[in-house]
Design a protein around this nucleic acid. Structure first.
Lengths: 98, 98
DNA sequence: GGTTTAATTCGACTTTGATCGAACAATATC
DNA sequence: GATATTGTTCGATCAAAGTCGAATTAAACC
């Protein structure tokens, strides 16, 4: 499967990032990813339907919060902390502390 | 007119604050209020319908971002920066810098 | 090739949220 | 009291976003 194209850090907008964070499931995913280097989709699934989670992963990718690395059949997700720190200093630290 | 009841700072949630910020008009209001002590609704109105703006003021109040002081017929709005800093350190600084 | 596993895409449905005119409430002023 | 000003509330409408089963893609493995 082809890689995803993630938006460049310069093109990220504060509004877009805030929209990405403004959902309970996505905020939970982001906060989880704040404490681990990366996690597969399955590891973040919980007991929710896969299709719902796929939607949230897509929103997180498009808003620039999440990077997805494909390895075989698994997708490993990580927080784009360095990019976000560069673009919006202090933001993720505050989010992950909450 | 009776005062509004603003939520206590302890009861604010990160998700609620993020939801409050995740709208272009509200983010603009918040960022504007970051640079002035307070502003009346009229001063923040722009060319938008009053009823639309009233809705956004309500959302901002309920999420704990905004405090409204009533003086006569005017409503003076201010950012609840001290409360937000206490509850979510660094968050508003990052938002206002964006 | 067939099967299992991981995750997405599609499509339909539902829910949430934004928009905004019209009516209303409250204060100030003449 | 009448009028103008400031802002809210109501109610209807519309658009955006979340939900999730079923079908699909892709890789791994026997």
């Amino acid at each position: 499967m082809a890689d995803y194209d993630h938006p460049a850090s310069e093109s990220l907008t504060l509004l877009g990032v805030l929209r990405g964070l403004a959902d309970p499931i996505r905020l939970e995913i982001v906060q989880h990813l704040g404490s681990v280097p990366e996690a597969s989709c399955a590891a973040l699934l919980g007991d929710r339907p896969r299709s719902s989670m796929s939607h949230h992963f897509q929103v997180l990718r498009e808003s620039g919060l999440l990077h997805t690395r494909i390895q075989g059949v698994q997708h490993f997700n990580s927080l784009r902390k360095a990019d976000l720190d560069l673009r919006f200093p202090g933001l993720m630290e505050a989010i992950l502390a909450g």
